[in-house]
Amino acid sequence: MSGALLETRALCKSFGALDVARGIDFRLDAGARHALIGPNGAGKTTFVNLLTGLLQPSSGCVLLHGEDVTRLAQARRVKRGIARTFQINQLFRGLTVLENVCIAVAERMGAGGGMWRPAGRRTEVVQEAARLIESLKLDADAGRRVGELPYGRQRLVEIAIALGLNPRVLLLDEPAAGIPSAESHILLDAIAALPTDIAVLIIEHDMDLVFRFARRITVLVGGAIFADGTPEEIAANREVRAVYLGSALDA
């Protein structure tokens, strides 16, 4: 009955006495442009970690295409179409931008374990990686080591890697954090250019970006869903304004 790509049911996670996810029911439909917002410590990143399998929930389940993937390891979920970026860059700092993206593309194409033909000669992998790098305007830096790049450029590499996995569901954990505002349009353009049928969930504190991007917003507070609705509904919600949005919107 449902077209939900990714769904959670009564998802709970606690670290000792601390409940960081409290019965989260959530769904992400094909083609969704969804934002997850909330104050610091609301459990947004934990929620993404539960979705990707980096963390195991204490109870509840995660469904992908209607199949229960709760016990599936991270790498297996990636193969089924979940890709993410990290709040803090997780890159191969000693390798070039091109190599970073190539590693992701090679894994997606199932070529990551090949032992014979040199990696640089896998033209199908390298071309795909180069195309992604160009689409994110990273071509001038393609041959540079990631560790040498300014943080904002590294953020874009993070996104290129996720896109290289050709995801059905893309989870972006504060993608704009650290990107100079003059360059954030590159990020927005890249997200806008994504195939319309893939689902995108974005965690972001930049409300400007959230309200430009999202067609649906979920507000998470204290590990539970506080509000959920269209951007207009969320913007008009008095409680949300009181808890979180207030100053961000009035400013």
Partner: peptide, 25 residues
């Protein structure tokens, strides 16, 4: 120099990321 070797380097450089690109680490 093979993709296998590059993926080993990837594991050395960033284990978390290597899991997140779906590699059987």
């Amino acid at each position: 120099y093979s993709p296998f070797g590059r993926s080993l380097t990837g594991i050395r450089e960033n284990l978390l990321r290597m899991h997140a690109v779906g590699a059987p680490v």
